[in-house]
C-alpha cells in the first residue's frame, strides 16, 4: 500500500527552488489538499512575482501569472466571473505584505471567497536577498547590511494580526513547516482554507512561516532551527480568526 507519494495536483516539472527551500513542502500541501477535496478540475491558481513566480508550471490546475502584489485582485476577478470555481493565490512576503498590501487588506475586508497561501520567509528571495516587510529587527540582508534598524527601516509587519482587526476574514492562521508535526498542522490549516471556500464561507488566509537557507546564509537544517528561534517569537503560530469555530462556541 502506498502511504506517501507525490500528489497528482502537482505536475512532473522539477521545482527550481534551492535545496531545503520550504516552498516545495507548501506546494505539496496545497496540491494534497486539492487532491483530497477532489477539486483539481475546478481550481484556478494565481502565481505571484517572487521566488514562486513559476508556480504555474508546478500546479496541474489552470493557472494565471499575476503582476507583483496583484494576485488578490486577479483572484477576485476570476472568482466574480466564475463563482463556482475554487480560486487560490500563492504569494510571498514582498508580494503580499509590501507592494500588494492594499490588495491584501481590501480583499480581506471584502471577505472575498478565495484562499490565500502566504509564504513569510522574511526576505526577498528571487532578487537575491533584500529586506522584506517581514524581515526581523537586526536581520542582515542585502539592503539592510547593518541589520534592520527600526529607526530608519521600521518594524516587521504581522499580517495575521493585522488582518484579524478586520470583520471580513473567515479564517486566518499562522503555521510553519520546520518539523513533521508542524507540517501536519500546516496541512490541516491549508485544507481548511480550501474547505471554507468550497462551503462559501469567505476569505481564508494561511501564513506559512518559511525558510530561505540561501539568503539567510545558513544550511537547510540551520534554517529550520532559525524558524524556531528567531521567526516564531516574532510570528507566533496559531489561529487568529476562525468564524465557524467562534460560532460553534
Amino acid at each position: 500500500m502506498i502511504v506517501f507519494d507525490k500528489p497528482k495536483s502537482l505536475t512532473d516539472a522539477v521545482f527550481h527552488y534551492c535545496p531545503g527551500c520550504t516552498h516545495g513542502i507548501v506546494h505539496r500541501l496545497v496540491a494534497e489538499s486539492i487532491d483530497e477535496l477532489g477539486i483539481e478540475g475546478r481550481t484556478i491558481g494565481i502565481a505571484p512575482v517572487g521566488c514562486s513566480v513559476l508556480a504555474y508550471n508546478y500546479f496541474a490546475c489552470d493557472m494565471i501569472e499575476a503582476a507583483h502584489g496583484r494576485a488578490p485582485a486577479v483572484a477576485t476577478g476570476v472568482k466574480r466571473a466564475l463563482p463556482d470555481r475554487i480560486v487560490f493565490s500563492y504569494q510571498g512576503d514582498g508580494d503580499l505584505a509590501s507592494i500588494g498590501m492594499c490588495e491584501t487588506v481590501s480583499t480581506a475586508a471584502r471577505g472575498e471567497n478565495i484562499t490565500i497561501i502566504f509564504i513569510n520567509n522574511a526576505i526577498y528571495g528571487m532578487t537575491g536577498g533584500q529586506m522584506a516587510p517581514t524581515s526581523l529587527i537586526g536581520q542582515v540582508t542585502q539592503t539592510s547590511p547593518y541589520g534592520r534598524d527600526p529607526k530608519t527601516q521600521g518594524y516587521p509587519i504581522r499580517i495575521c494580526e493585522l488582518l484579524a482587526t478586520l470583520d471580513g476574514p473567515e479564517y486566518l492562521a499562522r503555521v510553519t513547516v520546520n518539523s513533521v508535526p508542524h507540517v501536519r498542522q500546516a496541512k490541516k490549516a491549508i485544507k481548511k482554507a480550501f474547505q471554507n471556500q468550497i462551503e462559501g464561507k469567505g476569505f481564508s488566509l494561511v501564513e506559512v512561516v518559511s525558510s530561505c537557507p540561501t539568503n539567510w546564509g545558513v544550511t537547510p537544517l540551520e534554517a529550520m532551527k532559525w524558524i524556531d528561534e528567531k521567526m516564531i517569537p516574532q510570528y507566533p503560530l496559531g489561529v487568529y480568526r476562525d468564524r465557524s469555530e467562534e460560532a460553534s462556541r
Binding site: 522539477v14 516545495g24 513533521v180 501536519r184
Partner: peptide, 10 residues
C-alpha cells in the same frame, strides 16, 4: 513529509 522535492515514495 519533510522532503521539499517529492523525492520519496513510501
Amino acid at each position: 513529509i519533510m522532503c521539499p522535492d517529492c523525492v520519496i515514495k513510501v
